[in-house]
Nucleic acid binder design. Sequence first.
DNA 1: TTGTACGCGTTATCAA
DNA 2: TTGATAACGCGTACAA
Lengths: 349, 349
Amino acid sequence: MKRKVTLKQIAKELDVSISTVSKALRNSIEISEDTRQKVQAFAKLYNYRPNNIALSLKNRKTKTIGIIIPEIVHYFFSKVITGIELVANKRGYNVIVGLSNESFDKEVINMQMLANGSIDGFILSIAKETLQQQDYHHFIETINQGMPIVMFDRVVNEIPCDKVIVDDVKGAKKAVGKLISGGCKHIAIITTKDYVSVGKLRTQGYLEALEDHKINPKASLILKIEDKLLSDDHLDKLENEIEQLFKSNTAIDGVFAVNELYAVTAIKVARKLGLEIPKSLQVVSFTDGVLSKHSTPSLTTVSQHGQEIGEKSANLLINRLELDENDEDEEIFETVVIETNLIERESTK
Amino acid sequence: MKRKVTLKQIAKELDVSISTVSKALRNSIEISEDTRQKVQAFAKLYNYRPNNIALSLKNRKTKTIGIIIPEIVHYFFSKVITGIELVANKRGYNVIVGLSNESFDKEVINMQMLANGSIDGFILSIAKETLQQQDYHHFIETINQGMPIVMFDRVVNEIPCDKVIVDDVKGAKKAVGKLISGGCKHIAIITTKDYVSVGKLRTQGYLEALEDHKINPKASLILKIEDKLLSDDHLDKLENEIEQLFKSNTAIDGVFAVNELYAVTAIKVARKLGLEIPKSLQVVSFTDGVLSKHSTPSLTTVSQHGQEIGEKSANLLINRLELDENDEDEEIFETVVIETNLIERESTK
DNA sequence: TTGTACGCGTTATCAA
DNA sequence: TTGATAACGCGTACAA
């Protein structure tokens, strides 16, 4: 087992100085053709690669991006990671992942672990618990230490950083608009509690769409789910709540669900109650994931373009990282809105 | 914007030496109670944290695990990551993710990027292209450089490393056994080409199950899909192939699919052809993911326990990393088999 | 053309 | 009780 070879070892072996080796490898014209050849041959033979850690220490930059997301077993978030990774690698960066598991403490700890020199900047989406507690000091602190953050999807206005979001309101309006134009008169929404920013915005879009079409919203048609991480227990509870919704509002002919799970569950319950889709009930959901595409009937959904969000976030972050040094164009933060689009499938007319 | 504070700065500020500060912070008894207090107070005030990179360089270990997987937008792989991350964090490690995207080149490049000091060891699942080309030199090389690897799920025998796999053969036998005991006489399998090790093993399990029950396998009931990454094109092709299968074998009353996608697609096609599930056609699939649980009908599946695989892999790797230094218990590699279990749902009787 | 010295931030060893 | 020094691996300004 040959350990990784270093400049020092090559230097010793070839009986030259370390810096000669270093220069030779970087093809410096200072070094004679002769020694250059010799060193390079030797280096290739022993498969020399500069040690990243040493470079990081020297350059005071790691070329690594820290990602903190609430969970990874989730179509949207993994798509975002794909996008980040794509751009990051293309631009010479690595990606290190931390999961908050929707917990405030884990979010804080994870950020601390990474902020101590391991990474150059963060891309993150805020944990539900954090949103609920509205305690954002850890974001502020890391930013104050000169480490840039890009937030995506679940963002919060008071933090000075670049943001990439989806036009949730507009997306929701498209979704509900589709139901209305499909003839629905009694449209229910299945959404999250308001502290989840995206849930709130989608609810707002729902209300605006109704208003635009002179439909009076009814409180009884708005179901706000308390969604912690989805255990089987919660799943049962979800089904029950939706069943109640349908039973006490038999006129419902359209459902807008703010995520796929709510949508398929609604369909499941509706079927049990004898409703046909899309004939007697039409369903639209947010998040264009596996479920939407492959379940039967396939779902009409609002696509959030997760990968694009990831790519944009990565570009924003890296741009800022590579700008920081020269200019001082800081303090001007961008909020990029990624357009959604409606993908029509079998769950609507 | 206050930069991250270092020992040096604290030392200067307090007019003591760097090593005094270092010792004081680590509560060394060499340092007087007085200065200790002073230093610690100051450090706390400025929120001092030791720089990870410097520590990595000094200790010649990064406390970081590199993960290389074919794709992340995939229930099984993201579950595995969740498991790895859980154990890693508990044991003080970070996790850095590289995606091979099923490509040999990206796998090699990603490993090179990380192997240059960024990480202490790898946990990976081999890209399809690599399996196809059977070129494993990059694994051998990194192992030879003293960097341990743990392979999971898609493994290859000739590499000397720890492995965590699923009892694919046994799992497949369970699945097919379920169909047989449910009364199926003509069981088809939808699987991958043989170079995907897990596909091959599951096919083998299928054949063994048939044999055990004295059923003669029929070549026409074995559909091997060439599955590159699933674009929409491939999806259409998949549907067509499955439709052909059903049409030319109308006696089929049971289907064993080696993954969820094949299963739901089979169901979709079957429905189109007027088959009722599970009455006239029963379906079992591998991989217990979102689709299995939430599509209608929900699928009877073989659960692979992805999270457990991740946890086990991480423990194996970290054990080896933390052993390496003292003993030389190397060269004895373990292959852990994670038991599968059958989760019965609506797609079987 | 080559080599020396320094610094990145930390800890360990040894000297004061 | 404190401090100077070396080392981890690298690149580079400057000296030879």
